[in-house]
């Protein structure tokens, strides 16, 4: 009776006697053990995955856990000097690509960025280290002087920069930003198609977030708050 209930008894029994019936029992036992082991592995994998997923908050556009770390690039800053990768260090940077002859998306987005920046004044970790950078993809028309006048109109605290295409591309390629000149039948009239997303760069040059248009300041503010909380909790 005991032998029928316990596989361990079967083992002992099988060690001494070897009949076709015992082989069948051994096979059944191995099958049960195998299935239990398989189930344990599957459950382990499930819970491990679930825990790892739970660690990363579900934030639209948050590029975690594998943010690109930005490396060297050099832009000409509107207010003089250069804006290179080192200028990102220690700052939370909100980045937007556009051009000053863009009358619709660019002013709208710069105003959105101003609103987001103001709304996050109560977050010291962000407020003390935040910068907004407008990068022009139209260096031919957007000289540093033109750029300075443009961004100063929106907010004197805004930063603006541009560069010749080769230098500009050293940055855009890292961020996956696209832009292309759109000619018209009038040579003096041209515009650019460009990535209209707002990008978030962390204080260690991590490309952390992409906020795609259409932009809603409140949604971006909430996303940044959650990203900041997550990064602080992770101490990164």
């Amino acid at each position: 009776m005991q032998r029928r209930c316990s596989p361990f008894v079967h083992l002992r029994y099988n060690a001494s006697v070897n009949t076709p019936k015992d082989d069948q029992s051994r096979f059944r036992f191995s099958l049960v053990v195998g299935l239990i082991a398989l189930l344990a592995c599957a459950m382990g994998a499930y819970f491990a995955t679930r825990q790892a997923t739970a660690e990363v908050p579900d934030i639209q556009g948050f590029l975690w856990p594998d943010p690109v770390i930005l490396h060297d690039f050099t832009l000409l800053e509107a207010h003089g000097g250069v804006f290179d990768a080192a200028r990102l260090d220690g700052h939370w940077t909100l980045l937007f690509f556009g051009f000053t002859h863009c009358p619709d998306v660019c002013p709208t987005t710069l105003n959105t960025l101003k609103t987001v920046r103001s709304a996050l004044r109560d977050v010291p970790a962000f407020d003390a280290h935040a910068q907004i950078l407008f990068v022009s993809v139209d260096p031919a028309r957007d000289t540093p002087a033109v750029l300075r006048q443009y961004v100063d109109y929106f907010d004197p605290h805004l930063l603006a920069a541009t560069a010749a295409p080769d230098e500009l591309n050293a940055l855009t390629r890292q961020l996956g930003v696209l832009y292309s000149k759109v000619e018209t039948d009038k040579p003096s009239v041209y515009s650019f198609d460009h990535t209209a997303a707002i990008l978030l760069i962390g204080p260690a040059r991590q490309f952390l977030g992409v906020f795609s248009p259409p932009h809603h300041a409140a949604e971006i503010e909430t996303a940044i708050r959650r990203i900041l909380a997550f990064m602080q909790a992770k101490r990164v």
Binding site: C102, A196, P213
Partner: peptide, 19 residues
Amino acid sequence: KLVMLHETVLQAGQAHMVA
């Protein structure tokens, strides 16, 4: 000097100006 009718079209995160 010139007035045109344009539409901003967003496609895959790209802003296109369409006359």
